[in-house]
C-alpha cells in the first residue's frame, strides 16, 4: 500500500482565476442580506402552510389552558386575584396564555431544524453562499408570524369570553408584539438545542423540560407574591415573568412605560444573547471540532 501517494496533475497558475470564475455570491449590502432573509422566510412559511397540523395543533393546548384555567382555577383563586388586580381572572390569564402560545411555538422551532438536518436540507443551505445569520433570521421571522397568528387567536377568544384590554386594539397589537419579541430567545434556544442534539426526541424533551417549570415558576398563572419564597426568587429571574408582565401591563394597566420599559429591555437583551449563540452554533456547524 502506498501511504504517501497524492494526486498531482498538470495545472497552471492564474492569479486572476478567482476573478474569472462565475460566482453567484457577489451579492453584498443590506438589500442582498434582506433577500437572503426573505428566501428562508418564504421557505419556512411555505412548509408551515403545508403542515397545518403543527399550526393548529400547537394552539390547541393554550386554548384548552385558557378555558380550563379560567373555569377551574378562576373559580378557586379568581376572586382573590381579580380583586387584587381589579379585573376578572380571565383578563389576568389571557396575557399568560399569549406568552404560553409564544413559548410552545418557539419550542417547536428546533424540530424543523432537526428535520432539515435529517433530510439533508441543512447541509444544502450551509453550502450556499447565504449568510448564516440570514438563514437564522429568516427562519425566526417565520416562527414570529406563527406566534402572531396564534396570539391573535387567543386574544380574540379571550375578548369573546369576556376579557377586557385596557389599551384597546392598539394595545392588543402591542401585546402580540411583546409575544413575538418574547418568542425570539426561546426560538434561538430551541434551535441551539437542535444543533447540539441533532435529534428530534431530544430537542422536544429538552424544550418541554424547560417549558412547564418555566411557566409555573413565573407570574403567568398566579401573582409572584403568592408563590413560596424561593419560587419568587426564581420567578424574578425567569424570562417568562418579563413577557407576561409586559403583556399584562398592556392588558390591565395601560401604557405604563415605566413598567413596560424594563420588561422589554430584558426581552431584547435575551433575544440578542440567544440569537448570537444560535448564529455562532450555525457557523460552528462546519467545524470538525464540534
Amino acid at each position: 500500500m502506498n501511504g504517501g501517494a497524492e494526486t498531482r496533475t498538470a495545472t497552471v497558475e492564474d492569479p486572476q482565476f478567482a476573478d474569472s470564475v462565475t460566482t453567484t455570491s457577489g451579492r453584498t449590502g443590506s438589500t442582498a442580506y434582506l433577500a437572503e432573509v426573505w428566501v428562508n422566510f418564504k421557505r419556512w412559511n411555505r412548509k408551515a402552510l403545508r403542515n397545518p397540523f403543527i399550526v393548529v395543533g400547537s394552539v390547541v393546548q393554550p386554548v384548552v389552558f385558557l378555558l380550563l384555567f379560567s373555569e377551574v382555577f378562576g373559580g378557586v383563586v379568581g376572586a382573590t386575584i381579580g380583586d387584587a388586580a381589579g379585573v376578572g381572572y380571565l383578563t389576568f390569564l389571557v396575557p399568560a396564555i399569549v406568552i404560553q402560545v409564544a413559548l410552545i411555538a418557539a419550542s417547536s422551532s428546533g424540530i424543523g431544524l432537526v428535520n432539515d438536518i435529517e433530510n439533508g436540507m441543512f447541509e444544502k443551505v450551509l453550502v450556499t453562499p447565504m449568510r448564516r445569520s440570514a438563514v437564522f433570521v429568516g427562519k425566526t421571522l417565520s416562527e414570529m408570524i406563527r406566534v402572531a397568528v396564534q396570539g391573535t387567536l387567543i386574544v380574540v377568544l379571550g375578548v369573546l369570553l369576556g376579557a377586557t384590554i385596557e389599551t384597546g386594539v392598539l394595545g392588543a397589537l402591542a401585546m402580540l408584539g411583546v409575544a413575538v419579541l418574547f418568542s425570539v430567545w426561546f426560538t434561538a434556544f430551541s434551535n441551539v438545542l437542535a444543533l447540539v442534539t441533532r435529534d428530534q426526541e431530544s430537542t422536544i424533551i429538552g424544550a418541554n423540560l424547560l417549558t412547564f417549570p418555566l411557566l409555573f415558576v413565573s407570574s403567568a398563572f398566579l401573582p409572584i407574591e403568592s408563590l413560596p419564597g424561593w419560587m419568587q426568587v426564581v420567578a424574578r429571574l425567569n424570562p417568562i415573568t418579563y413577557g407576561v408582565d409586559a403583556t399584562r401591563t398592556l392588558m390591565i394597566e395601560g401604557w405604563n412605560w415605566s413598567a413596560l420599559a424594563p420588561d422589554l429591555a430584558v426581552l431584547v437583551g435575551l433575544d440578542v444573547v440567544f440569537g448570537a449563540v444560535a448564529v455562532f452554533m450555525l457557523t460552528r456547524a462546519s467545524s470538525a471540532r464540534v
Binding site: 453567484t24 421557505r43 433530510n119 439533508g120 436540507m121 447541509e123 453550502v127 450556499t128 453562499p129
Partner: peptide, 16 residues
C-alpha cells in the same frame, strides 16, 4: 465566494 462557485450534491438526498 467559494460556495457561490460550486455545486454540491450530498450523499443523502438533500431536498425539502
Amino acid at each position: 465566494a467559494l460556495r457561490g462557485s460550486i455545486g454540491y450534491m450530498a450523499q443523502e438526498t438533500s431536498i425539502d
